[in-house]
Amino acid sequence: MTSQPASWHPPRALVFCWLGLMTLLAITVALAYVPLGTANTVVALAIATIKALLIAATFMELRERSGMMIAFAGAGFFWLAIMLWLAFADYVTRPDFPPPG
């Protein structure tokens, strides 16, 4: 960045992030009413993930942080992903392995 904006103005990245988040909110609500079958869930979760990443990268300033800080920030989500994965490995495959008797 070569030129600083007037002292109290918000940085451009924050304004674009906020506008992006509001646009994504409008899109996700509109798409929720379009019949897409199971894709509705995929779209809703994908947009929620993009919004969460925008918040983490820009509002929480992770894009300016070191790899170690990002690793700490991602750790909780990493373990949560393992918990969801193992739990669903059980529930999704249960019908294939009925209890004996």
Binding site: T28, V29, A32, Y33, V34, P35, L36, N40, T41, A44, L45, I47, A48, K51, A52, I55, A56, F59
Partner: peptide
């Protein structure tokens, strides 16, 4: 805020198109 974004997708959005 981030937690709410996820809760919003799980609570309000499903089942609207049906």
């Amino acid at each position: 805020d981030l937690v709410w974004v996820v809760l919003f997708a799980l609570i309000y959005l499903p089942g609207r198109a049906g």
